[in-house]
Design a protein around this nucleic acid. Structure first.
Lengths: 231, 231
DNA sequence: TAATTATTTTTGTGATCACATTTTTAAAAT
DNA sequence: ATTTTAAAAATGTGATCACAAAAATAATTA
């Protein structure tokens, strides 16, 4: 029933209701606060964020197009269940997508942007040091996003975000059941490669960052986590 | 105003209005019958398909999340303008995505599905022979889709479709200004590689199919086409 | 007690309306 | 004739309502 736990979120002036609903749901899914399998009701969400069905429905449509939600045959909407196989597909897709995004960004990178990346990485290290997983996760995303959007004609970012969104619920589960997330940092490697404008090295750093990061989960560990989470 | 040319489309029983609107607009964009830059109005579309704003808005939200439409600051909605740079990004992304999708499909391919692929390719050759570009284009898509969806846990297909959708308007322009589309057929090559379960060869065939097909446009040809189309 | 049927409630869907903003058209001024 | 200003029309947005389908609950039967 309408007991949906949605963390509050500041709403910038001028933001439409459906946009706000989209962002808030998106964040909730990304950090895994909506359990996969749990079904969402339009009215429930509308009530939880004090609006009405119309804008909420628009937000849900967008999220389903982004792969974050799945519409069942009976028109119920839910966060997709994770399986070990799907997880493996997502990680492999993420690695390929981001290597490509990184390569296509290299020709457009500026020293100014590399400095920005270094600053984000420093902030992330701080967050890791004080064991603030949530912030570290967010800064990690910002690092990758800042790199890929160096390419002004880039069309890949929405797809990268879609993969992040689909992996989100699993990360949420992992954070619940693992005492401390293990953070890999290949960012320094990436930055060094960027300064040399070495495409291959940049791609290799991104690849390592992903394969040793989220891609580092053993299949058996994944199955255990999913079982623990009642999936 | 409201003089939107939407080809009629059969509506299967049980299909919701927003779903129907989504499919119909999607097809119109895919074949390039909505000019980039032309702005769409919710009421205009609703009127054109004899429904109301609510479901049309949902369809538009989905299409904008799929990259087919762009929402401007003044909240106007339009088909994104194509540029030579964006085109190049899209083609390079398409090549990379589809090679990956093909590779991940190989382990799941069955002889039965390879036969299906051969049949689709045969039908496409027929369509090309009778100079039926529209049908050939559709069958080409079906060939690729049938290959990639052999992988049951595949999560990449929506992204492939998104790229097709974003390239659609350009194909529409090309079909208007070029007497006859030049079709490449590396499908036989792909089929042969599939029978041998040779991942590298399959990926190479897909790569060639794309780079010699839509990727074969010279940059100058693209710029000319876009200029001709008043972009 | 377990299974089946009937009733009630909940839910998704789409049309309509009101409001604010934007765009277009008409009128006036320079 | 060109620019400014004023009025009118069109447009995006979101709340509300009615309806049908689905789910949950209550009542009944085996």
């Amino acid at each position: 029933m309408g007991n949906l736990a949605l963390e509050p979120l500041e709403r910038p002036e001028g933001m439409t209701t459906h946009e706000y609903a989209h962002r808030r749901l998106r964040q909730a899914i990304m950090v895994g606060s909506i359990r996969p399998g749990e079904s969402l009701t339009i009215r429930g969400i509308a009530e939880a964020m004090e609006s009405s069905p119309t804008p909420v429905r628009e937000a849900l449509r967008r999220l389903s197009s982004e792969g974050a939600l799945r519409v069942l045959d009976n028109r119920r909407i839910m966060v997709p269940r994770m399986t070990a196989d799907r997880f493996s597909e997502l990680v492999s897709l993420r690695s390929m997508l981001e290597q490509h995004a990184a390569r296509r960004a290299v020709p457009h990178i500026t020293e100014r942007r590399i400095d920005q990346l270094a600053e984000i990485d420093r902030a992330q290290d701080e967050a890791i040091a004080r064991k603030d997983d949530a912030t570290a996760l967010l800064l990690n995303q910002e690092f990758h996003r800042t790199l890929y959007t160096a390419n002004p004609e880039q069309v890949i970012m929405p797809m990268v975000e879609s993969v992040w969104l689909q992996l989100g619920p699993f990360l949420g589960i992992a954070m619940e059941h693992v005492a401390q997330l293990y953070f890999v940092d290949r960012h320094q490697e990436a930055i060094a490669a960027l300064r040399k404008r070495d495409e291959d090295a940049v791609a290799a750093a991104i690849r390592a960052d992903i394969s040793e990061g989220i891609g580092g989960f053993e299949r058996s560990a994944i199955e255990n986590l999913l079982k623990l989470a009642g999936q």
